[in-house]
Design a protein around this nucleic acid. Structure first.
Lengths: 228, 228
DNA sequence: CTTGTTGTTGACACTCCGCCAACAAGTTCC
DNA sequence: GGAACTTGTTGGCGGAGTGTCAACAACAAG
């Protein structure tokens, strides 16, 4: 009889194989830090040869970059909530949405965004870019669209705020030293202060204006809606 | 003549050699991330054999731990400023002092504390402990000494705030996307909000108190400007 | 079955790290 | 001054991890 070739390994489409490897890598990188995950581990987890990782993703760092990108790819904020209500209400909905989104990713989000990450300019660039996108969406949702002159500093301050967001989520997810309600409270109050008190104090690009002189958004009097 | 032995290498006291190696390690770890600094580089920089690093510091990670400890060893806050004046004045002096202290360390501080660090539980533990010390000093200086019941959550929130502090300093030191004055503004306003609005809202250890029950400052009723 | 395409493998070479026995600089004692 | 001892220091060995590449095998087409 024909001795049923009994293939020693299965042959997959490049996209399917790529996806499978990526999922295994995401799982392992979420369990332990970058340096503790060897390419051999990932290959064993995926049931393939180690060389295949390099074939599909190049260097180990490139594979990690793909994991980070996948992890930071979140559904848009503007699709879930509508920019109505007071500034406080919108801020609290934004924070709520972000905590919900992070909760689904859990440990991997903390591992990817936290200090427990790889020290690499490319990784930092990607995370920073993702922070910028989230910051822009949040600012637009909050009705803080301002002129381009001070946009760079606005984004810088939102990146600073993102640093607290990550640290807070780490306290919440990992050790449970903060409850979800406490994290929500902290992040909401801080964001309100930044949007309402700090950003308007920035001196405009041309000429100096003292505190509360002529900011794009006056403190305590946030504009209602300007996106429609 | 006596053939001048011509020693091929110099013999140092253990403490002196340790210090010399540590300084070289601090310099290199400040220039590029952990993984990019090989023990061979440090040994070459110090002009010693690579094995000597292991002899004095154990593993490479242990040497990095020493660098982090040295970097986070800062002069005490309470010695420089006295806890007088309004809350805002004390907060601004605290921030001022911290920015001054960090400015002297510069890049290395950013490299050690930022996301561009090693992913290691020990390192995180040390950084977290240092954050706790700084947070405790700051809270005490600000006169926020509270009962031990909610102390754990206070420290957790201060660690969250520390996340923003590091991110802000990174924006200031690295790219210069924020000026020192802007960093000062952001960190001061945020710290005031946390100390004044957020921490008092924490539910006491025994029994729950709803929002606005008896906090020091009610949410939604922004504080009066106490700066002039 | 033969041929061709290409997803996949296994081994080789290189780098980096921890370990350790041997070595030498400096000290003490005679 | 020289011998013996202490100990700071070296250099090489072996293991682990990674990138590369030619050869192989699974599958499709002729």
């Amino acid at each position: 009889m024909s001795p049923a070739p009994a293939p020693r390994w299965k042959r997959l489409e490049p996209d399917a194989r790529r996806e499978q490897i990526l999922e295994c890598a995401m799982r392992l990188f979420g369990e332990r830090p970058y340096a503790q995950v060897s390419t051999t581990d990932i290959a064993k987890e995926a049931g393939v040869a180690r060389g295949l990782l390099n074939h599909y993703f190049g260097q180990k760092r490139d594979l990690y970059l793909k994991v980070v990108k996948r992890m930071l790819l979140m559904p848009g904020l503007e699709e879930k909530v509508s920019p109505t209500g007071t500034l406080r209400q919108r801020v609290e909905r934004s924070v709520e949405w972000y905590l919900d989104t992070v909760a689904t990713h859990g440990k991997t989000y903390v591992a990817v965004t936290g200090a427990g990450s790889i020290a690499d300019p490319d990784v930092e660039r990607i995370i920073s870019a993702a922070d910028d996108v989230a910051a822009a969406k949040t600012l637009e949702f909050l009705g803080m669209k301002v002129e381009v002159g001070s946009d760079a500093r606005h984004r810088a301050m939102m990146r600073s705020y993102a640093g607290m967001v990550k640290a807070t989520i780490r306290e919440w997810i990992r050790g449970g030293t903060l409850s979800r309600e406490e994290a929500h409270l902290l992040l909401s109050e801080a964001l309100i202060t930044i949007v309402q008190d700090v950003l308007p104090q920035l001196t405009p690009p041309q000429g100096r204006a003292d505190k509360g002189d002529a900011p794009a958004v006056k403190p305590g009097a946030p504009r209602e809606k300007d996106e429609g």
